[in-house]
Nucleic acid binder design. Sequence first.
DNA 1: CATATTGTTGCGCTATTCGCAAAGATCATT
DNA 2: AATGATCTTTGCGAATAGCGCAACAATATG
Lengths: 300, 300
Amino acid sequence: MSSRFDELSAFVEVARRHSFVGAARQLDKHVSAVSRAVATLEARLGVRLLQRTTRSVALTEAGRDYFQRGEALLAEFDGAEAAVRDLGASLRGTLRVSAASGSGVIQIAGLVPEFLAAHPHLQLDLQLGNRYVDLIEEGYDLAIRVGALADSRLIARKLAPNRRVLVASPAWLERHGRPRTPAALQRHACLVLDIGTHPQRWQLVRRGAEEHVDARGPLRSNNVLALLAACRGDAGIALLPEFAVAADLRAGRLRRVLAGWATPEHGVYAVYPSARFVPAKVRAFIDFIAQRLRAPTVDA
Amino acid sequence: MSSRFDELSAFVEVARRHSFVGAARQLDKHVSAVSRAVATLEARLGVRLLQRTTRSVALTEAGRDYFQRGEALLAEFDGAEAAVRDLGASLRGTLRVSAASGSGVIQIAGLVPEFLAAHPHLQLDLQLGNRYVDLIEEGYDLAIRVGALADSRLIARKLAPNRRVLVASPAWLERHGRPRTPAALQRHACLVLDIGTHPQRWQLVRRGAEEHVDARGPLRSNNVLALLAACRGDAGIALLPEFAVAADLRAGRLRRVLAGWATPEHGVYAVYPSARFVPAKVRAFIDFIAQRLRAPTVDA
DNA sequence: CATATTGTTGCGCTATTCGCAAAGATCATT
DNA sequence: AATGATCTTTGCGAATAGCGCAACAATATG
């Protein structure tokens, strides 16, 4: 017992029941503890709160005042704790997500409506940007990132495999022909995704074999959608995330080039701080995205 | 540390300063204690409140929520304690006083206005009555009583000496003559104060000598003022509290009879519960009354 | 790259608190 | 009137919990 809080709850319980033994039973403490707690409280306040006899417990004027306030205070306290507990355990509040814009991860945005529909009390704050964000410092719940992660304070969970593949439009291939080797790419119009270090240095692998290509071409952009649009418009060969082009491949709007080759697998990761207490909303979002990315991509 | 309250204050302080060491300094605790307190709190809530690095401390969403509520809660808590402390230490609130009506103690009522004027924030609830009141049970702050006290749970402080003296009006004495001995009273008209046991059995003492008189007469009342008025109106000899007749004696409206004789000293007492924490208002009232009763009685 | 600061954690020690029991007090019942 | 039952307080020994120290891991600064 003791400590301002226990003192207060002891006093309130005694005042409520006009009995020390009753209060002790309720609080699952020994009578002596309750008695001491109230005595300590009175000593600290320098005021007598309860006028007690072996046969009766009555409130003094100060006691009545403190009882009223204290009872409300305890309720608020419990309320605050319950609310926070709730916030962590239930699917409420705001989910702040950071994702690199233009990296293709924004495809995930297409999954968002379904997620939100399933959790009506949840608000999503989806921040897209290429700027490096410090999740902890800026109060993000999680980030969707591609490839290796730098921050060791963070937990990463792989959502889906991910590699980039080469694509071009049927019309473009018709006109310029299909390159047969990675090296041949040098002579074609490459559409370069300007993300990370050495964006124009395409690393391609095929069953252990590895080649590096210096990609040059008419368009360079930090936005996957921009490249995708250009590619559909017969502008050249692009190296784009597999899931970003899946729909176009199935629809026949794009064809794979050098089908055996692709970039090394990097993976799409959900990154979040502190594995200790992961809020339910974060876990739910990650689970949802992971499940959807495992399932065949839905056409847009 | 520990206990919900300390946990909360530790967390709030850390959240406020974004620093554990700063909070520890402020709270005059060791950093380890603060760290543990927050960790315990998080464990109990099952929610992470602070996202911490060795270099930065940031609030999670749950943390922000709890911080807001918690900060307000602490303020309210301090407020409640301060208010109650104040109520005990300052002269505010209501002072409930019980006094036996008719016993002459109501003379004290004449002192009340001055007392109240000196303490404008104080309200007085002066309950007069002959019914026995349980101070504790009925929430009185103090009672003014004459003579021995029965309740051992109460503290008694003597306010003034008190004995009853015999008085009569000059006109009455002129007409009936002065009795020379107590026994002579039997032949005179006695005005009997009907309080306590054996009211008509007047016990008189004088330097060790003691006599008992069976008082009989035309008037018997449980009210001092009634007897006083009758006495002034030449109705007979009354045995009344000294302080109740002091003004009349000085003004010459009444004269003492058998001046050497008086009842044994009983005293006027202030009676109140619990010597442990006496509210300032109670102490102030008692001090005031005691001082005024020591000083020569003011004319009405 | 070295240094200083910050948050966490393990460990031993002290202090506090708890639980029991006895005492003191009061009401009900015989 | 006396006995018994119930209730609050308090003294005391035992046990738990909290504290402070120190080492550690991580990180920013010069």
